[in-house]
């Protein structure tokens, strides 16, 4: 049994619930980017996908003890990387 660790490069809207990710890129949209920065979200910062709304949108994300809700279309503008484990024979 070999356990391999894979790093997936994606965006925040695709982060599975409960997973921890590192922010690799902030949005191009200036004002959106600034508001995220002022809440303490930076490149290199870690972010967790906490839970989704009843209609799967928006979703709630946790970083630095702050819980914010983002629509998936907006979350998609934030680039992240996260690790998953897979098992092979």
């Amino acid at each position: 049994m070999i356990v391999t660790e894979k790093t997936i490069y994606s965006d925040l809207s695709k982060l599975p619930i409960g997973s921890n990710a590192i922010v690799t890129g902030l949005p191009d949209d200036r004002s959106f980017c600034r508001r995220l920065l002022s809440l303490g979200l930076t490149t290199g910062g870690s972010i967790v996908s906490a839970f989704k709304g009843p209609f799967n949108d928006p979703a709630a994300f946790l970083f630095k003890d702050t819980l914010i809700a983002l629509r998936l279309t907006d979350a998609a503008k934030i680039k992240i990387s996260y690790k998953t484990e897979g098992e092979h024979e």
Partner: peptide, 9 residues
């Protein structure tokens, strides 16, 4: 359709 950020206190 500006970005929507809602803080959950």
């Amino acid at each position: 359709n500006s970005s929507f950020i809602l803080e959950l206190p």
